[in-house]
Structures are given as C-alpha cells and as structure tokens.
Design a protein around this nucleic acid. Structure first.
Lengths: 150, 150
DNA sequence: TATAATTGTGGGTAGATGTGGGGAGAAATC
DNA sequence: GATTTCTCCCCACATCTACCCACAATTATA
C-alpha cells in the first residue's frame, strides 16, 4: 500500500522542542499507532520534510546504487545525509526536533503540518504565507505538461 | 536488511584519542549494541570512512574482482589495504583512532560524524566546511543522470 | 445534551549517552 | 626478566533523552 497523506493541521512545539505528529498521520502509517518513525530532512522550500520510514527506505535503496568513487555522488550523498535524521515518536506521539532543523525552517513555536502524498511538510506559518505569496502562479503550459500524466 | 545511516553528530576525542560512536549508529548495526566492529580507512575526500563489518565484507568481495595482473589494480588494492584498520568498540562504545589516521583527516579534538547510507564519515569541522565551500555545485547534468535511477 | 474517549500539551524523573580518568593486564622494547 | 608503552576494562558524573503521569481541550458516542 502507498502512504498518501492529505490535509493540514496546526500544532505547537513545547519547551523541549517536541512536536506532536497529528494522530491521523500516525495512524496512516502504522494501522495502530504502535511504532512510528519518520525521516526528517530540509526541504527544497524553506520547510522541513518528513518521510515515513518505509518511504525513506525505498529512496535510500536507490541512492545506494550510486558509486562512492565518483566525487559528485559523494558530495550529493553527504549533503543529503547530513540534513536527514531518523526520529521516532515517543509514547505520546511526539518527535524531538533538533534546533538546527528548526532554524532552517524558521520554526519557533507554531507549526503548520501539511500532508502531501507520501510525505509531510512542516512550516512556520509566516514563512509559509510569504512563500505562497512569492510563488509564480501556475501557467497554462504547466497544466498542459501535467496533462501528460494525469 | 541494508544498513542505511543518516544524520550528523558532533563528538569529541578524549585525551586517549578515543571517539564515541553515536549510540544511534551502534544500534543501527547490531539491533542491541552488543559487538560493534568497524573498518576505518582514509577517504577519497580528506576524511575518515568507517564501514560496519558486514558492509566491509561486501565491499572487499567486489575488490576481489580486480585482476592483480594490472599494475594500477595492485597499486589501488595495496593503498586501500594499508590504510584500513579493524576497530572494535569498547564497552562504552568508543573506538581508539590511530594518530596516523587522525593526521590524515586533520582531526584534532572535535569530530563531525556523518551517517552516509552504508558508511560513516569522520570529519574535522573546519576541514569539512572548507571542503564543502570548494566543491563545484552539482550541475543540471548531474541531476539529469540522477533522475534515471530515482 | 450528557458522557466517554481521544488528542495535544506540560512537566517530573529515571535511565541512556558522551566524556574523563584510574588502573589491571597485554604487548612491545630493552 | 624488567621496564615501558599500549589497550581496554571499570567507575564516575554531567547532560540529554524519553518514559510516565497529569490534565485541558476537543471530538466521538450514547
């Protein structure tokens, strides 16, 4: 089965930098909320991206095909890996986010959690709003191309 | 199962040149942190590279395919082998790094440990920063090629 | 509507982790 | 064989992590 998130929630970091993952997403991954592990990385946009472990494994298996005797591969893998961390939910369904990552996404206290197909995005509300405003609207060409697969 | 490290930590050498391997990586290898053995070698970049024992074995098997009747192969294998040492974690999860290797990677006290798929990289912080700055950014061609496998 | 269950948040505390250093035994050197 | 050096066990301890319990707010159920 393919993980497929949807929707949006707003939660708050507590004083220990812990974030509750909305229960609906936890249930999405593991039928019951037993174990629940995410890989969190810095997004291409100024937000954090969280993949459930199974999705992550699919991706890393592919990456392992890259030979480490090519300089560019090492560079790519290094950058990717440095920004990625494995986070396990605690018994209350929270993950402890490192300060480094919070800074990257400009997250202080409030966090918007967006379910996007097979990953979650974590946004600072203000940053998200500004980012949306600055986006170039999608043009007809884009939809034309989109039509090729949809 | 494939080993697949991720993330980054900062630890310190103690006065005896011992380095704590972050517990998350030790657990990653052996479900419980029982035995934990690494092969450490000098990287293609100015850092040390640590393979968990099983990964090392896979790698050496591949090396055996190189014909020893080619001068360059002999040279490569010789250099590789000379620089590789087997290090077992002590009961506190530390490995004793030889001075020779520390010098190679320019490691003094602080060590950045990067989990990179099936190996770990050990960096001196300054050296890492300089190295990253001096890298040619990955170009479009690279990502085009990458798209073939991802 | 009233009651029960779930969810998100807060905070105390036991245990895990990283670091330092003493000292016993092994290995190397003289 | 004696001395020195090296390695690895042990204990110690500050810091960090993740468990537990608690409770308010929300949602679901009777």
């Amino acid at each position: 089965m393919i993980t497929s998130f949807a929707g949006e929630s707003k939660n708050f970091l507590d004083d220990k930098s812990r974030l509750s993952i909305p229960a609906k997403y936890r249930r999405w991954i593991s039928g019951e909320d037993a174990e629940c592990t995410f890989f969190i990385t810095k997004g291409s946009d100024p937000c954090l991206v969280a993949y459930p472990e199974p999705e992550w494994e699919i991706f890393t298996e592919k990456l392992q095909q890259l030979s480490q005797f090519k300089k560019k591969n090492r560079s790519f893998i290094r950058t990717w890996s440095r920004n990625s961390i494995r986070l396990k939910c605690d018994k209350q369904g929270r993950v402890l986010l490192p300060q480094e990552h919070l800074n990257f996404a400009n997250i202080k206290k409030e966090v918007i959690i967006i379910g996007a197909l097979n990953y979650l995005e974590l946004w600072d509300p203000e940053t998200l709003e500004k980012h949306q405003e600055s986006q170039i609207p999608l043009d007809d060409d884009y939809y034309e191309d989109l039509a090729d697969i949809l």
